[in-house]
Computed example of a mutant assay.
Amino acid sequence: MELPIYTVDAFTDVPFQGNPAAVCLVNNEKLLSEEKLQQIAAEMNLSETVYIIDTQQTGFTLGDRFRIRWFTPTNEVNLCGHATVASASVLFYQLNNQSDRITFDSASGPLITERAQPNGITMNFPLNPPERQDEEEMSKLLQIVLPKNKIHSLHYSQSTKKLLVRMTDHCTRLDFESLRPDTTAMMNAESTGKVKGVIITLKGTIDNGCVDKTGEEYDFISRYFAPWNGIPEDPVTGSAHTVSGAYWSDVLKKKSLYARQCSKRGGDIRIQIKDDGRVNLTGQSAIVLKGTFMIS
């Protein structure tokens, strides 16, 4: 069996930055077992391997609705933003899909994607506002993640199992990017299953260095660690911004936000909070590889 496959760097317009995802086009899901889907993801060894499944048999060029599934190297997840950007980019910009919008049916419900200029993708995701979390309950994990005197507040998203740690405003971007939490120790400190990912975030200002290459100020910056899903630090994470975007929108009293995820590769995300409990995330992408996965 031959499986068309692409590697796409999402949330960037520059190759080798942003977050890479493998995008596989599947005509007949019955030919691939759950074990095989996971084996392919492990073989690709990227933070995410995504499968676009043509369940309606309309073809990837003409269809406007597909099933989507996301796999890390170790397990399947219910939502992945950067791999959804990558998937829509392949359909719109590589296969020249004729539709104005494409809907992906996922474990998290229908996800709508549209073209955004220049060469970008806008995704419509469920919003996941976090609630204030007692620091004492997470004290062992926090000791590994961040010094206590640098913690402003702690919040938790039950729907995504993501913990959001806000740094104090006197911290700089350099302080933020210098953090090196021990991800193995993080897993040992939190083994209950309550937390599947940790977002560290800092309010953006010109004074603390939170600006892009053009001088535009970021509303906030973040980093995301998910060793429980086999991802020590994720380069850029769309799903995490359904949590952090909701938090900062409430704090800053803004519905339109500009954010950067400050991993080694890094990437930018535009966020638009909607009135219907959902959020638009917009990012660019660079398709860097296409080929065929050979399956015996």
Rank of each mutant, 00 (worst) to 15 (best):
K253W: 00
V198A: 01
G230I: 05
V251D: 06
K196V: 05
Y218R: 00
T214S: 13
D212C: 02
G245M: 06
S244W: 02
K140I: 00
V236G: 08
I200V: 15
A185N: 07
S178T: 12
T183E: 13
K196L: 14
V243N: 02
L164I: 11
L252K: 06
Q143E: 15
D212R: 00
Y247T: 01
W228Y: 07
Y247W: 12
K254D: 06
K196Y: 10
Y247L: 14
N188M: 10
V165R: 08
S157T: 04
S244V: 14
V145F: 01
T214H: 11
A189F: 01
K203F: 03
S178P: 05
W228V: 08
S249N: 03
V165W: 08
H241I: 10
H155C: 12
K194R: 12
V145M: 13
K162M: 15
Y156E: 08
C210S: 13
N128W: 05
G197C: 07
R223H: 06
E177Y: 00
Q143L: 08
E217N: 07
D182E: 11
K213S: 13
P130E: 04
L174K: 11
T237V: 10
I144H: 02
I206G: 00
Q158D: 13
P129F: 09
A226Q: 04
S153N: 14
K161F: 11
S239L: 06
V211H: 02
E233A: 05
T205G: 06
V198K: 00
N188E: 15
V251E: 14
L163M: 12
E216F: 12
E233N: 10
F176D: 11
V236M: 06
D250F: 03
L164A: 13
R223C: 07
V211I: 12
T237W: 04
R223I: 10
T172Q: 05
I151R: 03
N149M: 07
